[in-house]
Write a protein that binds this DNA or RNA. Structure first.
Lengths: 221, 221
DNA sequence: GTCTATAGACCGATAGAC
DNA sequence: GTCTATCGGTCTATAGAC
């Protein structure tokens, strides 16, 4: 279960931190646990990363840079092929993170992403928004081109819904369980296919009618 | 910012815990912070709740019982009116939590739900599944009746996606910001309307075609 | 770069007086 | 039911030897 010893101290710390953060969250994981699993001295983490917060950021950077590049590359390929191919755009958004989930080395990371969204007030969220917000904005632009009739508010809402569904599916929450005969890889492909189908239909839905500001949800208690 | 002093010690602890858990997570919040904000003695939390874990459970129970009852009541009303009214079923699922988000007293709680889904390995998840899992199963049954053509796997996937989108929207992650002129209540109604429209279209999408197990997502590195 | 040792603070939980 | 005081343990971070 421990990180392989042929990697550098720094790499071993990153790997151990990724697994533990995925299992227990950031606040719920101590540096002592991390260094114990990585089989390095407790002082090494401060030598290599300076602080726990910076270690968290570096755990993200190691995977996110690659994942964002894969998403944008797939997006540009899909748009060059056919700018109105909504399914192609969605596949570019959805498949790279789910492909990462197949790897043993990346499966912990996708659960970390879900945790990051729940840890709302951290510097981590600013770090993610600053460093990777442009990816989401580029997808929003491509979808606006593919669906020119789509209302701007609906576009943003629905892109958020898609991201939420993806995050949720990646973290394998929920009631859908992998069938016994189906491999992990096949399960992820099923998820990607199902989500592309679901999100494409949702994005193509008729414009949402806004209710009168006076009425609507009943406020209770 | 502190809880009003006319409430009992127990209520004040619950209220303070709810706000802090929403902001900082469960592991990230200490009982000392909770009792400081509630303006009660540190020993009171163990007297009234026994342990931190049990306090977490009670924070949930206080809101979840009511929310689940509202969801099921709305579901039964919608199904009695028209068993094929998918939008009505979805409204029964989506509106009670978003209505809770409007209340000042409940807005922290909806963010806690998102945290609960991210805190994967706790007893909390078992607690939620044991106590409230039947609600989700009842919605699955109603949707299966409303959409008899819908494939069983697709139903479960798409219900998960809807729950993920709802969780994400409630916690106001994502890029959709409330417009300056729009009230919090109107914003929540917008979210509910947009999500019902999105999820209904997604659920009505054609059956997802499963790929051949041999091909699919490229496994990388 | 890696170690030991420790500072300085905070944690959850409890005992026991009132 | 509420308080003070405290136990035994944890934590992040750092100083300084090697």
């Amino acid at each position: 279960m421990n990180a392989a010893p042929q990697f550098s101290t720094k790499e071993r710390i990153l790997g151990a931190a990724e697994e533990l953060f995925a299992q227990q969250g950031f606040a719920g994981t101590s540096l002592r646990e991390v260094t114990r699993r990585a089989d390095v001295n407790i002082a090494a983490v401060n030598y290599h990363f300076g602080s726990k917060e910076n270690l968290v950021n570096e755990v993200f950077r190691r995977r996110m840079d690659d994942m964002s590049a894969r998403r944008l590359q797939a997006l540009h390929r899909a748009v060059a092929r056919d700018p109105s191919d909504l399914e192609g755009i969605l596949a570019a958004f959805i498949e790279p993170p789910l492909a990462l989930a197949i790897d043993r080395s990346g499966s912990a990371f996708v659960r970390i992403i879900a945790r990051a969204y729940a840890e709302k007030n951290d510097g981590l969220r600013r770090f993610l928004s600053d460093n990777y917000g442009h990816v989401l904005r580029e997808f929003a632009r491509a979808i606006a081109v593919a669906l020119p009739e789509l209302d701007r508010d609906d576009l943003y809402w629905r892109l958020d819904f898609t991201a939420g569904a993806l995050t949720y599916a990646m973290a394998d929450f929920g009631i859908t369980q992998r069938a016994d005969g189906r491999s992990e890889a096949a399960h992820c492909r099923d998820a990607a296919q199902a989500l592309i189908q679901f999100a494409a239909a949702g994005l193509r839905a008729p414009r949402t009618l806004r209710t009168d500001p006076e009425q609507g949800l009943e406020k209770h208690a």
